[in-house]
Design a protein around this nucleic acid. Sequence first.
DNA 1: GATGAATGAGCATTCATTCAT
DNA 2: CATGAATGAATGCTCATTCAT
Lengths: 204, 204, 204, 204
Amino acid sequence: MATPADTVELELPVDRKSAILASALAVFSEKGIAATTIEDIRARSQASVGSIYHHFGTKEGIAAALFGQGLDDYWVQLLAAAENQPTAERTIHGLIEAHIHWITAKPDMARFLFSRRQAVGPAYDPAIRARTAGHFKAVFALLKPWFKQGVLRRLPAELYVPLLMGPAQEYSRQWLAGRVELDPQIVIEELSRAAWLGLAVTKE
Amino acid sequence: MATPADTVELELPVDRKSAILASALAVFSEKGIAATTIEDIRARSQASVGSIYHHFGTKEGIAAALFGQGLDDYWVQLLAAAENQPTAERTIHGLIEAHIHWITAKPDMARFLFSRRQAVGPAYDPAIRARTAGHFKAVFALLKPWFKQGVLRRLPAELYVPLLMGPAQEYSRQWLAGRVELDPQIVIEELSRAAWLGLAVTKE
Amino acid sequence: MATPADTVELELPVDRKSAILASALAVFSEKGIAATTIEDIRARSQASVGSIYHHFGTKEGIAAALFGQGLDDYWVQLLAAAENQPTAERTIHGLIEAHIHWITAKPDMARFLFSRRQAVGPAYDPAIRARTAGHFKAVFALLKPWFKQGVLRRLPAELYVPLLMGPAQEYSRQWLAGRVELDPQIVIEELSRAAWLGLAVTKE
Amino acid sequence: MATPADTVELELPVDRKSAILASALAVFSEKGIAATTIEDIRARSQASVGSIYHHFGTKEGIAAALFGQGLDDYWVQLLAAAENQPTAERTIHGLIEAHIHWITAKPDMARFLFSRRQAVGPAYDPAIRARTAGHFKAVFALLKPWFKQGVLRRLPAELYVPLLMGPAQEYSRQWLAGRVELDPQIVIEELSRAAWLGLAVTKE
DNA sequence: GATGAATGAGCATTCATTCAT
DNA sequence: CATGAATGAATGCTCATTCAT
């Protein structure tokens, strides 16, 4: 067995394009998006400037490609986790659990994705918004039945994300910033509980 | 009739230093922090480059000064709102309400403050963390009695902020990004309710 | 024949890197090192700022490259002139002659080289010192035999350069500053004589 | 007794003007002339920018004042040392001795003075040249008798300084640069000897 | 597709100097 | 005479992007 697990750095070059994206993500995470230069990405990916521009056209092109990739990956996880759950409570639990697992598994991508406005310029805003909306709609569709059954509360649309994901999102930011370290299982239970209580119809 | 109300721009120059800070905040909000140049700030504040550097030493110095100012202002509001409340529920309600009012009153500063990592470099991190921790402690002290009375749940410290402020924070981000527009009163009630349910001891 | 001999200025661009070095030397000589700006060098070399930085990394990088080049060139001349001389006196004469010829042939480089401390920052000091020491050692080795034969005096090491090159060096500085103009042959004889008398073992 | 010997730094403020000059010299020596800013001088002299400009008008004005002061001081020493000597050899010895003593006593000023071209801009050149010429003439007059007596050689005027001061000057530069450290007495004897041999008429 | 030298607009920062108090 | 806030031209350097090979 040649390469030990922590020499990950050197395993990049699957193909050029992916290597560049992976390197970009790594550097973004290390130095911040704004502070990252093409030269940083070039050095890490062992590609040439020309090659980078050949594949992505612009610095922002790299970020956009990365963002799209991360966005889809994230929502795919959420969707999968929420499917085929027997109850609303378990569905919500599945979403929170998937969220925490995902940021834990891919912290660099999470950091990048959650820095929305810094990551990709306003030009890409509509596209991203549309894509996010699409994903969200798919997930929301899974909750529909329970709204009809009166298990989940009917609220102004803009409040669902804050109530559902707000606590998890806030915790994630702190964890990604290295300010916090807890047993994931406890965190998931607690954050799911909060989301559930905020959304569930009170029995009286 | 000399100056119409919306020509606010021109009323800046109280004293140089404040004018620079105010202008910086305005430009940060308009173009984003990373994209803001000293020249932008200079043009808006009608100061000279030299003057800016005389007062703040570095571009980051401006951001740091602004951040400190905003941070204190924010927490002062929270603290005031949470003081002298008769019940835990009302205290939590006060905090959320103050939060929403503050971001509504000072959206530019809120945008700046909530972009933590982009706003001020890692050099200032410890200082900011300490200052935030201090403010938070003061607020948390107001909730102490209810922990002792068994009204509020005892949880790992890292979960209080997510449960208490997470929903409000998530909503604020969307509102500040212009993605949402709701009746503040409804928002406050809903977000307070979520925070309360997440923190309160369940009667059973 | 298109370009007259004194339009040397326009013949620069052999390759970019050399053109930049040559231009830098010219401007250093004209305006002084401290007063020379990158823009001066850029204008003269007809390169772009980016190109200059691509090749030399720093303003000081240019000076360092130039210094190394000049240093080697100077000592190569001295060494060649001192080799294979029949007597100590002729060896010393050869060194002084080579020195005067070199500064006469390359006054700009001489001015640059002899302004040691101003030319290159302290960071490069050790490297330069080592390089100079190496060159000096090679030359000194040529004089060794005559020390053994009792023709040249044994003195504290630090005095050899002052006694050998001091008069020539002082004259050179004045000549390079344009304060003096003499028949080189007379100068060489006189300065060689002084060096020889200072170093030779007195017969008597 | 209040102030210990090594707190010399704090004893500056005799009067403002002198304090500024002394500070300037100190900083020049520490950071180099080109790298010294008015702010450096201000900080060390504990004067205000305004005050500095009031007294010297320009940054170069400081250097010029300092240069004049140092130049006169140097030559006064040389002259005194060469006066009333019984022989040409002792006169030359006196000059070299005074030179070495002076640079040893006032290394900062020596460093400043010997960096001629960097110290003061070309504007002051004629004035300095004239002043130096005057001083030199006075000293040279002391040697006149021995030229007439055929003890000292008649040479092109431009060669006297190189032959007389060249070795000492070269040694001084190295000593001031910290590259050398010898017993002053030996150095003086050796450098005087070289100067004498270079200038004396050979007995045959 | 890949390479890397070249480009040049743009930026943060410095610093001598001025001048109102 | 002293002070220090204010000025703004000038400078070294960065970096996204292009393009000939």
